[in-house]
Amino acid sequence: MALLFFGKDPNTNGDDCPTVWVDDASADLVLQGWKADAGTETECLAVGHIPDTEAVIRIPARMVPLIRKACDAAEQRGRPAVR
């Protein structure tokens, strides 16, 4: 597995901040974000259980351009090759 780096939160110092990658093999998005606060997690639980293997994270809206680029790349990688 190789992760393609798309960027970190542009309004931080570059350390310990939300980050966006795409898994080169599966085309999955990989996101590092802030842990959601208890209130946010409670609201999320209203629509279903959060398994131990999952987490609710918060990504700042200012990262939408990075996520959009990562989504475009993931979509391209996830398509079968055209012959």
Rank of each mutant, 00 (worst) to 15 (best):
L66K: 00
G78F: 03
S26P: 05
E75M: 13
L66G: 00
R77Q: 12
K69R: 14
Q76A: 09
I50E: 15
T40F: 09
A70M: 05
K35L: 13
A74I: 11
G78M: 04
Q32D: 03
T53A: 15
L4I: 14
P10L: 04
W34C: 03
T42G: 08
V82D: 12
R68D: 11
D15I: 14
A81D: 10
L31G: 10
D37C: 13
A27W: 02
D72T: 15
A55S: 12
L66Q: 01
R58L: 08
T19H: 04
P60L: 00
I50T: 10
W21E: 01
L45K: 13
A74M: 08
M1H: 14
V30K: 05
R62K: 03
H49F: 14
A25R: 11
V64F: 08
T40N: 09
R68M: 08
R62F: 00
T42M: 07
I57Q: 09
A38L: 09
D24C: 01
G78D: 07
R77P: 02
A74C: 12
A81S: 10
I59A: 02
M63L: 03
D9S: 00
V22C: 03
D37A: 13
V30C: 08
R62D: 08
E54K: 15
M1K: 07
A46D: 08
R68L: 13
A25P: 02
A27L: 06
V64P: 01
L29C: 04
V22K: 01
A70H: 00
N11T: 06
D15S: 11
I67N: 00
A73Q: 13
R79Q: 15
N11C: 05
M63C: 01
L29A: 09
E54L: 09
P51S: 11
G48P: 06
P18T: 04
T42A: 14
V56T: 11
P80M: 06
P80H: 06
P51T: 03
A27I: 02
E43R: 14
T42L: 15
H49V: 15
G14L: 12
V20M: 03
V22D: 01
T42R: 09
D52T: 14
T40S: 10
I67E: 03
V22R: 04
R68Q: 10
T12M: 01
I57A: 08
D24P: 01
D37Y: 04
D15G: 10
L31E: 04
K8A: 02
R77L: 14
D72C: 10
R62H: 07
A2C: 06
R58S: 08
R68I: 10
E54F: 07
L31Q: 06
P18I: 02
V30I: 15
V56R: 06
D15Y: 15
H49P: 05
L31H: 04
M63Q: 00
G78H: 07
T19G: 01
R79K: 07
V20Y: 00
A27P: 05
F5V: 01
P80D: 05
P18F: 02
P18D: 02
C71H: 12
P80K: 11
I50V: 11
T40L: 13
P10G: 02
A81P: 05
D52K: 12
P80L: 10
D15E: 12
F5T: 01
A2S: 08
D72A: 14
G33S: 05
L3G: 03
T42D: 10
E41H: 06
I59R: 00
V64D: 15
A61S: 09
W21M: 01
R83M: 15
V30M: 07
F6A: 03
V30E: 05
A2Q: 13
